[in-house]
Amino acid sequence: MSFLEFLMSRWPTILSLTLEHLLIVFIAMVISIALGVSVGILITKNKVAAQIVLNFTNILMTIPSLALFSLLIPVLGIGKIPAIVGLVAYTQLPIVRNVYTGMMTINPSILEAARGMGLTEKKILRTIKIPLAFPAMMSGIRTATVMGIGIGAIAGYIGAGGLGVYIFQGISRSNDQMVIVGAVIISLISILTDRFLGGLQRKLNR
């Protein structure tokens, strides 16, 4: 079977796996961004908490993703839920770290001026700190999302579905075409997402 014939005959499966993949990553990223941004903002109030959280997320990230997913199996079983949990845990570091650094590296004189002028802390957070930390947040979100897409493929191993399934099945069945198609599509999605978010980032920063 030629490569083209392979694509022609399998495209419904490929498409549905791709959509499934995107859906899982999308859900995970929505949760991850909401959680990561909140945590990143919260820990700016306390240096010790910040150290602990950053170290913890750092360690989370050194755990190889396959190992992390496998460790979730005894707790959460297999399927999409552990995949999403794993993805959220795994993509916290870039988001939390960037939100935190983005907020902490704001020129203190800007904050002093804001306080001195009589803005409330809530108002300072909303109108000064978050907008100023926004570029850093965006770049963290970009890194995390691209990571999430790649790790989402590995989640295929624990029954999350998605393009990883195609790759793992292809490997075990020695079907090179499946492996290559899975790998190429996942790479394209990663690259395109990175490009898109990069473009968005530049646009928003202007």
């Binding site: 691209v146 897409i149 790649g150 790790i151 493929a153 590995i154 990883g164 790759i167 292809g170 490997i171 020695s174 090179d176 075409q177 492996v179 290559i180 899975g182 790998a183 190429v184 996942i186 790479s187 990663s190 690259i191 990175d194």
Partner: peptide, 21 residues
């Protein structure tokens, strides 16, 4: 930089596709 956004599993998979296991 583009290469670095390619997931590790995809890199492994691609080399399987071309080199076997």
């Amino acid at each position: 930089n583009i290469g670095q956004t390619v997931p590790s599993l995809a890199v492994v998979a691609l080399s399987v596709g071309f080199l076997g296991v």
